[in-house]
Every structure is written in C-alpha cells, then in structure tokens.
Design a protein around this nucleic acid. Structure first.
Lengths: 128, 128
DNA sequence: CTGAATGCAAAGCCTTTGCATACGG
DNA sequence: CCGTATGCAAAGGCTTTGCATTCAG
C-alpha cells in the first residue's frame, strides 16, 4: 500500500481515540491537520486500512459504522442512550461452537462479534 | 397498541421467515397481500413491534437492518459473502462479565449481542 | 368522535462512486 | 513515468418524517 500524507494522518488521528469514532467525526479532526482532505478520502482509507487488517471496522449496533485502531478481536460496550462505544477493560472469552455439530459440516465460521450494551457512566448519572 | 390490518399482516409475514428479512424484502412480500401498503408503514410497524418486544431488530453486521420474529435472545450466523442471516441451531451461552468489576460500578450492562460470521452453505459451495 | 395509523412523497443520514487532477515509488 | 490516491460533487442505499386522510376502539 502506498503511503500518503492523508493515510498517515488518518491513522494517527484514529489512534488517538480511546472511543471509536465514526468516519464523519474523524474527518472533522483530520481536517484540523489537513484542511483540504475530503470525506471520500477518509472513507476510502478507513475501508482500505480495515481490509488490510490494520484497523477494525465496527459494524454492529447503531446506525453509523465506527472504527477501532486495534484490529485484535476484543469486546465492546455500547451505550444505548448516547451511542458511545468503548472497549471492555477486561478479557471476555467468546464461546467456541462445537466444530463437530452437523450444522457446521456445510458452513464455515470465521469469527464472532460480541458486544455488550447498556448505559454508560454519563448516561447513568443522567437517569432519574 | 391498536390492531390494524397492516400490522397484523406484517407480523404474519415476518413469522413465516426462517431467515431474517430486511424491511424492504418484507415490504415486497406484504404487498402481495396488501398491495397498497407503503414502505413507511412497514418501517413504522417494525420499529413499534420491536420497541414493544414482540419482534427483534438486528442491527449488527452488514448495512441493512434485519428483523427477527423471535424476540428471545439467541445467536445468529451471518454469511460474509451473501449477507444472509440465520439462527444458530444450538444454544450458546453468552459469557457474563463479573458484576463486581470496578468498571461496572458506574455503568449498567443491559444485554449482549453475539453474532458469528463466516460462509453459508451456498457460498461455501461456490468457493474455489 | 378522537387519537393513532396509513399512504405518499420528500427529505435525511451515512456511504459510495465517477472523473479529472495530483502525486508516490 | 505509470498507476494509485486525491478532491470534489453527485448519486446511492436505507430509513425517517411531514402532512392530509383514513380507520380502530
């Protein structure tokens, strides 16, 4: 993959995030560094980087897709109220289905997504 | 909730599905019974029914949202190639995080989504 | 009757794409 | 140099929404 200024900055900015921003949010931050970058470029790079396994595209929950600088499989916690997404700060083992189950004879499992949802700290405080 | 012909037919048609159709697919099937129903009505009803817990809205994986006539928590298998979604035909227990973990003192977990992905029977056969 | 539900069409949000230009290796 | 990457803007899915009308209770 060719290294361009845009690609580098996008990755840098993404890595600053503990939460997992959507393309649009990231676009606005990258724009502070590269004011002429286009939203299309951000999308194209995020897609490329996730296809190459450098980052991870989170497609579950909520409407908007989010991006995670950590491509290793790990679980997330999504707030059902404000939509924020964070890593779980502890390990959770995703259960392995029994490979000998007849149903899996004609299918292939490549991986799993496990997401917990609930109320984040801010939204819990805001509840009555 | 008021019972309308549209609402009843939408639910009936959804229940016929073993897979989990998107709103658009369901709309076309309902139209065979109620030719004048609108796509907006289908969306509004699917949203209402899932808010009431009668059905379940699947938001993870792929772009389009899908709807499951079974509101009970259970796992799905999504084909990364054709996008089809099916129930897993066996039980899988979602791991419970340790409720005493300090991180959870200020948050509340309401549930979890566990989705496996891979290649379905048809797409496995089509691979080289 | 009265508020909730519908059909229709327009608008909305997020994402992708076509094309001419710029640039990295 | 060549082919990939970019900026720009337009188009594309899918979903939501405003509004006048219809319908269920």
């Amino acid at each position: 993959m060719r290294e361009t200024k845009q690609r580098r900055i996008i990755l840098e900015e993404l890595k600053k995030h503990m939460d997992h921003p959507g393309a649009d949010e990231l676009y606005h931050e990258v724009r502070k560094v590269l004011p002429r970058i286009s939203l299309g470029t951000v999308y194209r790079n995020l897609d490329l980087l996730s296809e190459c396994g450098v980052i991870r595209k989170l497609e579950y929950g909520s409407g908007q897709k989010r991006f995670d600088p950590n491509p290793q499989p790990h679980c997330h916690f999504r707030c059902v109220k404000c939509g924020s997404v964070k890593d779980l700060p502890f390990e959770i083992e995703v259960p392995e289905p029994d490979k000998n189950h007849p149903w899996l004879k004609t299918r292939k499992i490549l991986g799993a997504n496990l997401e917990y949802y609930g109320l984040c700290t801010e939204c819990m405080a805001g509840e009555h």
